[in-house]
């Protein structure tokens, strides 16, 4: 029984994460502290953007995780549909609020950054708009989980929603790109960061991204454990009623 699916057993999952979780948490703390301090205090100001550029250390990692969290939910939903492992469905459920918060952080830091740079808190730039739409997708997904009482029904329906939603999210991304190039070809606000970031900024950014990835993993593991225990509690209550 040496397959990866072994960890899809709730008991095994709890046992494994008992050992893994503290390490992941510590690592994520270290990476975040190192990355953020390095980024904020030991990098020079950008010659065009001044010190505002430093918000990049929050903005880029959170934006990355916002998308990756949805990807992870998609994979977990597929695993649930195909193999019916309960932990997988619960992991998808656990990841959704984390992903949503990442989206909010990306949007907020974007607004804070955008204000001095572009002179506006919000612009209907394709990237910003796509993130707003992503936020709506998260909202719908979480609301559907919350609305359905039966756990397995909820897992099935949210998985279907996640699948269909992913297709439509990609479609929306292209539609939004198309839409803003459309008639009003105003000032293009999109910043292609990765390309014009110099090494001095790039290395602390990598550390921050690693920190965010680890933070995400730690939060999802923690929340999945909570979901498993909540589920077990409901199951025990049900058993008691059967008496």
């Amino acid at each position: 029984m040496n397959s990866i699916w072994e960890y899809a057993n709730p008991k095994k999952f709890i046992q494994t994460t008992d050992k893994v979780l503290p390490w992941v948490s510590i690592l994520s703390c270290v990476a975040l502290v190192v990355g953020l301090i390095w980024g904020f205090f030991f990098t020079p100001d950008d010659y065009r953007q001044g010190s505002t550029v430093k918000i990049i250390y929050l903005h880029v990692p959170s934006a990355l995780m916002a998308i990756n969290a949805w990807m992870m939910m998609l994979v977990a939903s597929l695993i649930w549909i195909v193999r019916r492992h309960h932990v997988s469905a619960l992991a998808a459920r656990a990841a959704a609020p984390v992903g949503m918060i990442m989206t909010v952080i990306a949007l907020l830091t974007g607004a804070i950054w955008g204000q001095p740079m572009w002179g506006t808190w919000w612009a209907w730039d394709p990237r910003l708009t796509s993130f707003l739409i992503l936020f709506l997708f998260y909202l719908g997904y979480i609301a559907l989980w919350a609305a359905i009482e039966n756990d397995d029904t909820a897992a099935d329906l949210t998985s279907v929603l996640c699948l269909v939603g992913s297709v439509f999210a990609v479609l929306s991304r292209y539609a939004v790109n198309f839409w803003n190039q459309g008639l009003h070809q105003g000032a293009s606000l999109s910043l292609d960061k990765e390309e014009n970031v110099a090494d001095v900024f790039y290395h602390p950014l990598l550390v921050c991204i690693a920190g965010f990835v680890l933070l995400f993993i730690a939060l999802v593991l923690l929340r999945t454990r909570t979901e498993i225990r909540a589920r077990r509690m409901r199951a025990l209550l049900a058993r008691e009623r059967m008496g």
């Binding site: 057993n9 709730p10 008991k11 019916r84 492992h85 309960h86 498993i228 589920r231 077990r232 409901r234 199951a235 025990l236 058993r239």
Partner: peptide
């Protein structure tokens, strides 16, 4: 009660 597997029981 020990059967804590796929169905959480």
């Amino acid at each position: 009660p020990d059967d804590f597997d796929g169905v959480f029981l």
